[in-house]
């Protein structure tokens, strides 16, 4: 038996909108720790890892570990039927091939339940070790989204370079080149508007903008985004989900042979 009641149902709606274009089908894993997902895109270049910790739910009952295969497009269709202020409860019985999403309006005057068919998904799970990164950049998520969008109108790839001068996003295409430099900026009153650069050593990596733009669908989940870079690892683009967990996107770089 599984029953997860999320008062801030809009969080789940936003999570789905941020992953459904990257991944078609995925297993949601439910355990005492929380509700999680790890899935790769079809070309095995990008990976999304989601965690919504059990403590973040108003009610969290998960009698035994359960993995539920869902088509994310279908799940998104169902969650779009929930109001932004609705409380969402996810329910499943042991051995059942369906999951139920229950939507309650804040005033309790409307209660809806949507039952969705589950599917068997053979998913590959990757072990992602804790790592030291050469540089970690924290910046406003809207600013990062804007940069990715702007650069993708010029080129297909972005070079992200971190030096003591700041973080530089560069692209080149048929019509020309573009460089955007963001410097560390902690002097603002609002911490979510600051840009903080922690650099152990300079790093410069190239990534496909198509994926970066897809990751920025998670922008509504968090004011800040953290970009962790190392020349030996895929980049991690992380959006913290207030008091609940995170959504992390991993992207393998483009490498010059």
């Amino acid at each position: 038996m599984l029953e997860l009641r999320l008062v801030q149902g809009s969080l789940l709606k936003k999570v789905l909108e941020s992953v459904k274009d990257l991944v078609t089908d995925a297993n949601f894993d439910c355990s005492a720790t929380g509700f999680s997902l790890q899935a790769m895109d079809s070309s095995h270049v990008a990976l999304v890892a989601l965690l919504l910790r059990s403590e973040g739910f108003e009610h969290y009952r998960c009698d035994r570990n359960l993995s539920m295969g869902m088509n994310l497009n279908n799940m998104s269709k169902m969650l779009k039927c929930a109001g932004n202020d609705d409380i969402i409860t996810i329910k499943a019985d042991d051995g059942s091939d369906t999951v139920t999403f229950m939507f309650e309006s804040p005033t309790q005057d409307k209660i809806a339940d949507f039952e969705m068919k589950l599917m068997d998904i053979d998913s590959e799970h990757l072990g992602i070790p804790e790592a030291e990164y050469h540089a970690i950049v924290r910046m406003p998520s809207a600013e990062f989204a804007r940069i990715c969008k702007d650069l993708s109108s010029i080129g297909d790839t972005v070079v992200i370079s971190v030096t003591k001068e700041g973080v530089k996003f560069s692209t080149r295409g048929d019509i020309g080149t573009a460089n955007i430099v963001c410097r560390q900026n902690t002097s603002v009153d609002k911490p979510e508007e600051s840009t903080i650069i922690e650099m152990n050593e300079p790093v410069s990596l190239t990534f496909a903008l198509r994926y970066m733009n897809s990751f920025t669908k998670a922008t509504p989940l968090a004011n800040s985004v953290t970009i962790s870079l190392s020349s030996e690892l895929p980049v991690v683009v992380e959006y913290k989900i207030a008091e609940m967990g995170y959504i992390r996107f991993y992207l393998a770089p483009k490498i010059e042979d």
Binding site: M40, H125, A252, D257
Partner: peptide
């Protein structure tokens, strides 16, 4: 020539 690396080159399957 620039090629796209795969995640499998960095992370092991578990």
């Amino acid at each position: 020539y620039i090629r796209q690396a795969m995640l499998a080159g960095y992370f092991m399957q578990v």
